[in-house]
Design a binder for these strands. Structure first.
Lengths: 333, 333
DNA sequence: CTGAAAGCGCTTACAG
DNA sequence: CTGAAAGCGCTTACAG
């Protein structure tokens, strides 16, 4: 009863049916003229005998791989990771409809060896970058090789197709709300400044001050807070300056900050107000709830994937897409 | 100066050199006799002209895909996610050496549609499961289709190749240490009981009691704590029972517990002692440091991948591999 | 040591 | 509407 696991080929189908491979191929692909009766006969046989064409062989014939590569950063904050994972789900869901699969590639800012390998081996038709850097090796490689790709996140490189949440507008809007509610002394606690996203947010922060006609002293901006100690020191300095509103660029920074404040017995929002980005699990159960900007990562991944397919199919697509965000005002501010 | 992006084929190489494709192929693969001079000439030309054979075409000819599939659970706790990601890095590093790539597949306990698709499309030579369930659709599918695969984590299914940290022994050892230090009333706070890993740990817990000749009342075991509320309720009950040692099956449960204890102004380790698994980022910066069992996820991924290659290459491999763990005794106990 | 030829499992002009 | 043949870019018996 058991069949040899799906090893049946188009040739066998053709012979069994007494038609040519061409006919079988046409019945499946729907391309080219074919008699309605024949088609149905073929399709029926295929269904019953559980024939599935080899995508690999089809790929060879059509010079396609039916794979896209997703470049996942090897280094990340935990809050980013779940963001990436969700984006991946979005990508995968879209790609699946097109019968494409995802080739996973892991790289760092400095080392894109695996991406290079995959590209050289010609295993993918396109690439999605889950993170961008101000100087981005992956972007340079892909542009040089003329491989279609879409970046999640902003870039300054010209001619790069990208999909992004409107980080700058989001940060600006939130900052404006904070400014109007609590006055001008907001301290920004930011992440690595080699990431484009850090700059987007910083610019939004500055935009808000400018729009309100306010001065923004250097001393209210902290970047590159990559460790708990760095965050705590920045917080100490901010509090000494009498800043009573702290805006964190990501939830990990925020969670470090919260612990620090708790240890100092500072009450939120009474003594200090806090806001953050992401709205990830990290801050899910804080008390009080933290004001944050939420982004839908799954949707982002899907949008990136959709755009990539436009590129691969030579359809037109806007170079840049900005997705909406959501500001969740909560008790912490 | 710019070359057409790597589109050069073996045919062109052969012609340019005035030899046959066969020869070129042999020079590259190292299989079959070939003159040292010829080989060098070919290799040199290839190097200079940046020729890379198409892996896809090679695959077709050899009936291989040079891909392995990694099945990533769609639902997870945050602590698991970084564990999965690290395992993936290990897998990827090993696969890369073999010039294999990773096809990412996302599935849930109930829905393995993408895995089925990939299998039907014959896009992979083998599969790694990053999680196992007591009743596991993926295992059943792969066994039926006779696709080589390795499970990360234990299964009760017979004939499944698996790699695992010794969860049971780890839990037993930690429990014994706790028993000898603080007496018999330890409460176990556990996760979803459809996961095999949950059972492994539970068994280890029970082993320890048995080994010490102690009775283990049902009331000291809580499973399926999937929400903060569930954890808090379990904690309340445990404290009422006068249990003063809490062993968490994962770091997320533990972090929920810690917040709860903090709100109740209970001091660790003075009033309550706490231990956990994973040693992930979630508990990285707690004060006091939490006793935990640490597992090396990257190593686990690598071991799983190594075993998978044994299977694919028809080499012998033990059906089951248990990796060591590390118990980190810290201030919390 | 080297090459012509068949084959991997498909697709796609080209003829009929 | 249907099929024979060439082709996608490799590998691998088989001959020489």
């Amino acid at each position: 009863m058991e069949k040899e696991s799906g090893k049946i080929t188009i040739d066998q189908v053709a012979k069994a049916l007494g038609v040519s491979k061409t006919t079988v191929s046409r019945a499946i692909s729907g391309k080219g003229r074919i008699g309605e009766a024949t088609r149905r006969r073929v399709l029926e046989y295929i269904e019953e005998n559980d024939y599935k064409p080899s995508i690999i062989a089809r790929g060879l014939a059509q010079s396609k791989t039916f794979n896209i590569c997703v470049l996942l950063p090897e280094n990340y904050h935990l809050s980013e990771l779940s963001f990436f994972q969700k984006a991946m789900v979005g990508i995968q869901q879209y790609a699946e409809q097109k019968d494409y699969d995802i080739l996973l590639c892991i790289g760092t800012e400095e080392d894109n060896g695996s991406l290079e390998r995959i590209v050289r081996n010609q295993k993918v038709d396109g690439v999605i970058l889950l993170r961008t850097y101000r100087k981005d090796q992956a972007v340079e490689l892909l542009q040089k090789k003329r491989i279609p790709f879409v970046a999640v996140g902003d870039t300054d490189y010209p001619g790069v197709y990208q999909v992004n949440h409107d980080q700058r507008a989001a940060c600006r809007e939130l900052t404006e709300k904070l400014l109007s509610g609590h006055g001008p002394s907001i301290v920004l606690l930011g992440g690595r400044d080699s990431l484009v996203i850090t700059w987007n947010r910083l610019e939004g922060f500055q935009d808000a001050y400018r729009a309100c006609g306010l001065d923004l002293p250097e001393s209210q901006i902290y970047l590159n807070l990559e460790s708990r100690e760095a965050v705590e020191q920045a917080a100490d300095e901010a509090l000494e300056q009498k800043c009573r509103v702290l805006l964190c660029m990501d939830d990990v920074i925020c969670s470090w900050l919260l612990r620090k404040l708790q240890r100092e017995h500072l009450q939120i929002p009474r003594d200090v107000r806090v806001a953050s980005f992401y709205n990830s699990w990290v801050l899910e159960n804080t008390d009080p709830a933290i004001t944050a900007i939420a982004f839908d990562a799954r949707e982002l991944g899907e949008a990136a994937c959709r755009k990539l397919f436009c590129l691969m199919e030579q359809e037109e697509a806007p170079e840049r897409t900005l997705l909406p965000y959501q500001i969740l005002l909560r008790e912490s501010t």
